[in-house]
Design a protein around this nucleic acid. Sequence first.
DNA 1: GCGACAG
DNA 2: ATCTTGTCGC
Length: 242
Amino acid sequence: MTSADFPRYDLPPDWPTTEAEATAVQERLRAAVVTAGEVAPPGEGAGTVAGVDVAYDDERGVVAAAAVALDPRTLAVVGEATAVGPVTFPYVPGLLAFREIPAVLDALGALDRAGHRPDLVVCDGYGLAHPRRFGLASHLGVLTGLPVIGVAKNPFTFRHADPGPHRGDWSPLLDGEEEVGRALRTRDGVKPVFVSVGHRVDLDSACAHTLHLARDYRQPETTRRADALCRRALAEVRAARS
DNA sequence: GCGACAG
DNA sequence: ATCTTGTCGC
């Protein structure tokens, strides 16, 4: 495992098909998560930040993923890629990664081959804020080797005090006594988002980037762009198959 | 056993 | 996630 081997965008050969296998994979890979690391603060370095998201049509069993690269300084879109495939796993709380990652890896790989290798990936959902401390963001990070953070819209099963009313205010997201992430207010008076470490980025850095990316809206611009793109891609597949 | 439960 | 109209507000 040297850095020269990364990033990788291929699905591991032992990718599970059952819930029991999936849980076992999480228990096994969780040890590979790197909790520390700082990504260069936005506005100070080159590089790009990518957002990934997925949309589903369970009726037709189709999933569409999008990966969008942004200039972290201006938040302008500099690259886009999508991937479409079959739905291979149901939504099970705690096992979201197995539903999303196959398509996300395809989209991220396409983005990389198009000339945009991200220095940071932002995804919907959680990283360490997970029953087994191995949510989507951590899983994606360990598989690709890229720095990844998780920004979710809901607190899942975790508890938190209401953060202060202003942008930048935050409170710990707690699993019992353990801080697994933060409830971060990105807009004055608006419901916070829930940030957690994915891989190779510490929590302070993850929150700093989230706040920067959520300059204009509650959610990071990366997520908004990826969300819009994967919906568009799904709509195109529907049209082509009707 | 029952309910809650990222997307 | 997705199903879905109008509507209040900047």
